[in-house]
Design a protein around this nucleic acid. Sequence first.
DNA 1: GGGTTATTTAAAAACTTTTTTAAAAAAAAT
DNA 2: ATTTTTTTTAAAAAAGTTTTTAAATAACCC
Lengths: 223, 223
Amino acid sequence: MKILIIEDDISIRNVLRLSLESKGFVVDEAGDGDTGSYLARTNSYDVILLDNILPKKLGGFVCKEIREAGKNTPILVLSSKQEVLTKVQLLNTGVDDYITKPFSFEELMARMRAITRRPNVLMRQIYTFKDIEINIHSQIVKRKNKEIYLTRKEFSLLEYLIKNQNNVVSRGEILEHVWDMSIDPFSNTIETHIMNLRKKLHDTKRLLISSIPGRGYKFNFKQ
Amino acid sequence: MKILIIEDDISIRNVLRLSLESKGFVVDEAGDGDTGSYLARTNSYDVILLDNILPKKLGGFVCKEIREAGKNTPILVLSSKQEVLTKVQLLNTGVDDYITKPFSFEELMARMRAITRRPNVLMRQIYTFKDIEINIHSQIVKRKNKEIYLTRKEFSLLEYLIKNQNNVVSRGEILEHVWDMSIDPFSNTIETHIMNLRKKLHDTKRLLISSIPGRGYKFNFKQ
DNA sequence: GGGTTATTTAAAAACTTTTTTAAAAAAAAT
DNA sequence: ATTTTTTTTAAAAAAGTTTTTAAATAACCC
């Protein structure tokens, strides 16, 4: 899951990034409305956290631009207490929900969970394949009921593969969703992580993660 | 499906080629407007991706040349943020759509899908012939409901034959559509691939792919 | 903050699969 | 019957993937 934070206060941004990354999210940041709007329109995020008072462009306007570009990424507005935002105003700009600052991290997670829980998306939280169990929410992977420790990148990668189960995902798509924008597109870090994942999941025969030469990788999930 | 990329930045070209090829496209490249215009006028592409700021010839002019040569290949312009391109300006040069750099691969694919989705072209995505099922989009071929693995070249070749079903396609036409411009025109690689395809599809009697001596091959699709 | 440990990325070598080439055998055309 | 074209097989070359190792970066702990 990849999040974009559009927020001018660097310390809020840092706190958010830290907390979100510890929950296994991949985070991109923008310090002003222009950059934020631009990143939102040119990347695929799962959620956008949008401060309402921003330099260069106001949150409401950023939101409008994103929607006009045809992106329907869920947007959660972070508004300060003083601003009186009516639900009507919000709905008009295409925002999905808002949360008043200051808020607890648990509160934020709950709101994020709520706006990403859409009927069309398969949001299963626990997958079992043979003796392997993967819990997306708690980020715990078990094999023969024994916990397997995965690093953040390993988990993000596995999560992305699972969300596209039985479909081939190309290296480009993986990079766009699991890595942030600073990654070199010709790096072989994906391969290294795939290999570590297969090792940790004891997937020597590639039954779980198979390579499709020239196309990418595929997570095989049957029942 | 064959794509021409006209773009001077070699790293953008490389990234695009990589991503497109992993989705089963055949890619030709040009680093300047002159070469690009020439290739576009002398070959058959399904889509042309055209950078607007180019050495030797500007994108708009390249586009005009292609249209004047009688080619109506869909053209998607890759423009940078700074350039203020009005839709009117674009329409006047014969461009089909434009996308602002940088863009996500999903975005590009969506635009490409949009401009190639023309009513006259039979754009069926799933074909079934007896016990064989071919899904163009997911690039999966099944026989008796069991997946048959085809390599990229095998799939491209099959796709081209299917798109010209019940018509004879010559070796030259196949080379032009399924191979990129670096292929040796006297190579017999087509024959090898046809043979591998027939083997994988269990087409021993050539009911599916028949040879028309002196003319080429024909994919027989009834019902 | 500095040192330690863990994670991620990069580079290169080993290995696998795909694609192309070449050449002989079989089939079709003149 | 001979020439041309197509099919088949095998092997070389190219492309792509895996694995190992090392370096860089980030996270952790005192």
